[in-house]
Nucleic acid binder design. Structure first.
Lengths: 241, 241
DNA sequence: CGTATTATTGACTCCATTCAAAGATAGTGG
DNA sequence: CCACTATCTTTGAATGGAGTCAATAATACG
């Protein structure tokens, strides 16, 4: 075999849930060493996608639960007359695919927002793996529960005024980045203004104006897709006033 | 023992998942005779509540998954500054409580909208029961997945115009009632205009006006809390135009 | 370097809210 | 059973917040 292939095999052997730097954010969180070993053998690792590629499409058969290893993804729904809505926005270590649990078909489409790698627990193995590793079952129930409460929060946010929605988006993103050990104040967006708008139920113009306002008030500095949060408390006050 | 008490015992013995008239809507759907027998022994049956009583409160410890036997319930969330929002509206045979899966505390409050009875799978038994009855595990994943996609649809609906939201609400309710063998055209609301508004992200005045409009256009007849759907297709057209 | 996409900014419009007042309904106690 | 009260609903008029339309500016990309 060529050295090229052998290096691929090596990679395959080397990267497991045990040594994944995201293991404390992803599924392994709360599982014992032994449990992680067990699921590590079944998890398919490190598929690579590029910007605009689909992880899955609305209507696709449910293939399994996905975990983002690197990069970001968006979850998109189409309503009855085809307007697109951004249901979710996912960071490394976050899980994706629960929209396929209800009826074996995905209710949304998932797309890479940039170059992205991910892991997968194949659908056919979930049942048996859960029976073998009860802690995994508990974790999966927890995660799907989190997906549900996250969606409820998102929905709640979208009932509020335009400025509050943008603040909610920024603060949520900031918190999630911090939890991943990244900067919670220097945010590099992978979503366009249009996509933020579709996530929040606003037009891109509103998003643009509001970011400008916040900059004018000294809450943030905005440079295209880079947002620096200057005063998180003032941002929070927008929500609670 | 008095006849009164003995009749209570009888009732307790008689009503099980096997003979429940909702068994094809509720958890037993898709489970074998044997599986149903097994869970039937663990499900707590027929608690009774009255209008305004809580099934659980936001922040309560997760006690289990509830199934409505008779009556209707609403699920309520409070946002950061205390405005109430109606997350869901539940009919007999529907399951409730998934908002407690994420972190062992309920993210929402559930209240009876009228006299209500329900059954419960206690939280402590869910794990062991799922291991014993793998089909139950699958069913629960399916149900929580349905809760997630229902919430996404609700969110999607709330991005649309006011009339479309009211139509979406009426059609969803109509479908769910039909599926339960009840009339899908003679709807007896247990929600006030205010509550419908909080469910759809509208004011009660808008809800009232829109129902009046629909009546004027011959889509429905409205008598206080009774809504008769005259022309479902015309209602559907409001959504797709 | 030039083109395509994305973002900003302004003026105007419209849909749903807000405020207000009257009318209907349901629940309670005499 | 009726009167009384609280709650819910209807209806109207005025306001305002976000959308739409449009034109320019900036950025990304080949």
């Amino acid at each position: 075999m060529t050295p090229f292939v052998s290096s691929e095999i090596k990679t395959k052997l080397q990267i497991t849930c045990q040594n994944c730097n995201l293991s404390d954010l992803c599924i392994p969180r709360g599982l014992s060493q032994k449990d992680v070993e067990r699921i590590s053998n079944i998890v398919t690792r490190r598929k690579i996608l590029h910007k605009g590629d689909y992880l899955y499409r609305q209507g696709d058969k449910f293939r399994g639960i996905l975990a983002i290893k690197a990069g970001t993804a968006k979850l998109v729904s189409l309503d009855l007359d085809g307007n697109e809505f951004l249901t979710g926005y996912y960071l490394p270590g976050e899980l994706l695919g629960f929209d396929g649990l209800a009826d074996e078909r995905h209710a949304c489409s998932a797309l890479a927002l940039e170059t992205l790698t991910y892991c997968e627990i194949p659908a056919e193995q979930i049942d048996s793996l859960c029976l073998e590793v009860p802690n995994l079952m508990r974790e999966l129930f927890r995660h799907v529960g989190q997906a549900l409460t996250a969606e409820t929060s998102h929905h709640l946010l979208s009932q509020r005024g335009a400025e509050e929605r943008v603040v909610g988006f920024l603060l949520d993103l900031s918190d999630r980045l911090s939890r991943r050990g990244l900067s919670g104040t220097e945010i590099k967006l992978t979503l366009s203004r249009l996509e933020i708008g579709k996530y929040l139920g606003l037009t891109l113009e509103s998003v643009s104006r509001i970011l400008k306002n916040f900059e004018g008030m000294g809450f943030v500095t905005v440079n295209a897709k880079s947002i620096h949060i200057i005063d998180k408390d003032k941002l929070r006050n927008v929500l609670t006033n």
